[in-house]
Amino acid sequence: MAELTYRDAVARGIAQEMARDPDVVLIGEDIAKAGGVFKATVGLYEQFGPRRVRDTPISEQAILGAAMGAAMTGLKPIAEIMFADFAAVCWDYFANEFPKSRYMTNGQVKTPLVVRLGNGGGARFGAQHSQSVENWCMMIPGLKVVVPSSPVDVIGLMAAAVRDPDPVIFLEHKSLYATKGEVPDGEIVDTLGTAKILRHGKDATILALALMVPRALEAANRLHAEHGIDCEVIDVRSLVPLDTQTILASVARTHRVFTVEENPRLCGWGAELMSIIADEAFYDLDGPLVRITTPHIPLPAADVLEDLVIPSSARIVETVLRTLSN
């Protein structure tokens, strides 16, 4: 057992898979000698060499297209698209190429690859370097979408993503890179499509993702300590496949449910989850389904502004209190 940062967990997860399988290769901008702009791939170039850890030009379409062509013909590429916002300049591969080739070809073409992206806000980078793009990916049939919140999950889900035969979008949260967590020694392999109950409670279920997970946990602890409200906190972790069973079972126990979403309001993952809950757990509910999200605006850069719009633990506490007291 060792304490590791989320950032170092990314490199450890990739290293674990590269050491296991010579077909695993890593490409992206500044990911080799420089160790990545987020320093999440430090040491991999030194460990695995220039053949397997390769810098690319600023050519996101070339990066993803190359990853796809390599995957179709037998490699297991991991491609980095630095800031998740840049997915928009190579969106063809997310929307048209990776997810549809298997279907359109009646199963002939396979694209086992992982795209890593630096997702999310909190770094004062402004509207084009701070977005949470998991919803963009979630709505496309054929993609898998993974959003880890802790170092141990980063390693285990990275291993699961690399070993998965489908294209997996792996969203690393930029504001979690410096956070730390206990990580066991040895190989770690997790399972896609599994949510994790991080705190058990009986009064309400809070569903969260990525940076919103530690905030939901902090809010749950305060709600308990200061108000005697006992919340269950679930880290959804994987949007596709989606672990609805863990979530529906929790709602059946607590009868109240909240989502905490960093994305702008419209079409957030929470909206899909709430719709499933409304359909399948309606008679378990004792009150309205409440989504706590960033308002439907581009993200402002200034700290005082950004902190106001992305859900905070204080806003979660206030929303849960207000809702449960009605």
Binding site: G65, A67, G69, A70
Partner: peptide, 9 residues
């Protein structure tokens, strides 16, 4: 780019 990837393999 996809042809590049196959060639890279």
């Amino acid at each position: 780019p996809i042809a590049c990837g196959a060639a890279w393999r």
